[in-house]
Amino acid sequence: MIRKDQHLYLALLLPAIIVLLLFIAAPIINSFFLSFHRIIIGLPQLKTPFVALDNYLQLLKDPIARHSFFITIIFVALTTFFELLIGLFLALLIHHRFPGRGALRACVLIPWAIPTVVSAQMWRYLFNDAYGVINYMIFGANTNSYIPWLALPTTALSSIIVADIWKTSSFAALLILAGLQVIPEELYQAAKVDGAIVWQRFRHITWPLIRPALLIALLFRTIDAFRVFDLAFVMTQGGPADATNVLQLYGYKKMFVEGWMGYGSAVSVCIFIIVLVIAVAYVKMVGRRLLEANV
C-alpha cells in the first residue's frame, strides 16, 4: 500500500496550479471585476466607476446581444447535432477492421489538425460567389445563378456552420471511437449467433454502450461551440447585417474594437456562466465518471 503523502501531492500540483492561476484564474477574476465597472478605453476622463450589475442589466436589454445570443444558439444546436451524427458515422466506419483502415483513420483526422485560420480561408475560397467550386458543383458553368454564400444572412451563417462541422466532426468521431473500443467483441458475436441484423446489433448493443461517450463528446462540443470566434472573425467579421455576429465576436468587438472593457467582460462572463451551467448539468447526467476509468 502506498503512503498517501499529501505534501508530495501538493508539491507536484503546485507548478501546474501556479501557471493556471497566473494565466487563467487571475484573468477570469479580473474579467469579473471589470464587468462591474464602466470602463471606456477611449475616454479615460470618465474614470472607471463601479456600476455594480449595470453592465449585466444593459446586456439583458441589448437587442444586438439578444440577436447574437439567438444566432449562437442556432450555431451550437446545428453544429453539435451534425458533428455528433457525422462523428458517429465516421467512428463506426473506422471501428471496423478492414484493409486501409489506418489510411481512413488518418484521413478523418486531417480536418481536425488543420488550423482554423487555414480552414476559414479554405471555405472562403470554396464558397466564393464568382469562382467557388461549391457553386460550380450546384449550378455548373452558369455563373449567373451562383449563390453569394457569404453575402446572404442565412447562407452566411450556414457557411460558418458547415465550416465548423467539417473541422470538428473528426474530433467528435475520435471521442466516440474511444467509447466504441471498449465494447467487448463477444457481445457482437453472441448477437450474431442469435441472428440479429446490423441495425438490431447497433440498436441493442452499440447504442446503449456508447451513450456515455456520446455525452462526453456532446459536452466538449457544446462548450467549444458556445465560444466560437475564429471562424466568424476570419470569414465574415460578423456580417452581413450581423447575421454571423456570434456572442463571442460581439464581446470581442465591444472590448477590443469599441473599447467598452466592462461591457465586453460582462459578455464573456455570461458566456462562461452559460457554459458552466451546461457543463454541470452534463456532469450530473453522465454521473461521477469524470475520474473513473472503469465504469
Binding site: D129, P148, L150, P240
Partner: peptide
C-alpha cells in the same frame, strides 16, 4: 444585386 453582383455584400 443589380448594378453590382450581390456578392459585394461580403
Amino acid at each position: 444585386a443589380r448594378a453590382a453582383p450581390r456578392g459585394v455584400i461580403n
